[in-house]
Amino acid sequence: MTEASKTASASRGGFPDVRPVEDAPPELGRFVAALHRLQDLTVSTRPDPALWAAAAEHVESAGALLDGHQVSEVEAVAGRVLSLPGLGHPLLPPWTITSAGPDGVTMAGHFTQSHVGGNQAVHGGMIPLLYDWLCGMVVTCAEIRPTRTAYLHVDYRKITPIDEPLTAHGRVSELDGRKAFVTATMTAADGTVLTEANGLMVRLLPHQP
């Protein structure tokens, strides 16, 4: 272990110092977009049973191509690319950070068929996932890191639709020692507030993972 890594480990309690990737391969965006398309089709189609087996073989082949190339959390690319929807992470909704700074973070994007909870409305559990990501970005841009989510409360004001442009904004509303309180909203294109959230992010002590 280098002296620099020893210092980082001592100050961060072993929490990995994961930074954005600037030189991500362009093929990653194509791959993640294909995965999102696959997820949408998985929950919205009813093909001949034989097609499920054929499709499974293709997915298994893709897994076999990538298997054996695993790296550490700080070396992996997916989930760290600010320019890609969902940071290039296949499980995050395809949203993009449009502005970010110490005063707050704004994201724009949409939800798709794979996020439906029923009757073409976004599943209630998908929305806290987006807000947790947003809260993490808010405290990171405010240079409050590393943190863990202590709580996240979401108020559902209206049905959140799929395949429609949405915007979310979050900011630090209060600081109290290691505690960073974050407030956030999600709005439709016409400005209608769909959901609101407030969360508590707690800065880790040096010994906390």
Rank of each mutant, 00 (worst) to 15 (best):
L175K: 13
D132Y: 07
G191P: 12
V43P: 01
L66G: 06
Q113G: 12
L134Y: 05
I144L: 10
V105G: 10
G136W: 04
I127D: 02
R171E: 13
V139W: 03
M137L: 15
A100P: 04
E60K: 08
L134V: 09
T183K: 12
F15K: 08
V77A: 09
G79D: 06
D155H: 07
R157G: 01
N198I: 00
Q113M: 12
E73D: 15
H153W: 04
G199F: 03
V77W: 03
G136P: 03
L65K: 03
V182P: 00
E3I: 12
S173Y: 00
T98L: 09
V172N: 05
A168Y: 06
T96R: 14
V138N: 02
G109P: 06
A142H: 05
R80P: 06
A34M: 12
T147S: 12
R37M: 11
V21R: 14
R46A: 14
G104L: 07
A54H: 01
V21I: 14
P26H: 11
V202G: 02
G117F: 05
P25F: 03
G86M: 03
T106V: 15
N119G: 08
E27S: 15
K6D: 14
L65Q: 08
V193Q: 12
R148F: 14
A33N: 11
P165T: 02
H115K: 04
E22Y: 07
E143T: 11
V77R: 04
T7M: 05
S9K: 14
Q120D: 13
H169Y: 14
A189I: 04
G88E: 06
P146T: 12
P26E: 12
S99F: 06
M186L: 15
V138K: 05
E22L: 14
G13D: 10
M137G: 02
T185K: 10
R203D: 01
F111H: 04
E60G: 08
A142C: 11
H169N: 11
S114W: 13
K179H: 11
A55E: 02
E196L: 07
V59T: 04
A121Q: 13
D190S: 09
P209A: 15
Q39C: 10
Y131Q: 08
A34F: 01
G88Q: 07
V172W: 01
L129V: 15
E174W: 01
S99G: 12
H207Q: 15
P146R: 13
G125I: 07
L41S: 04
V71Q: 05
Y156I: 10
H36D: 05
K6T: 14
F31S: 12
Q120Y: 10
L35K: 02
A180C: 05
D190R: 06
G14M: 10
H115I: 00
T96W: 00
A8K: 09
T98Y: 05
V139N: 08
M186A: 10
Q120R: 13
K179I: 01
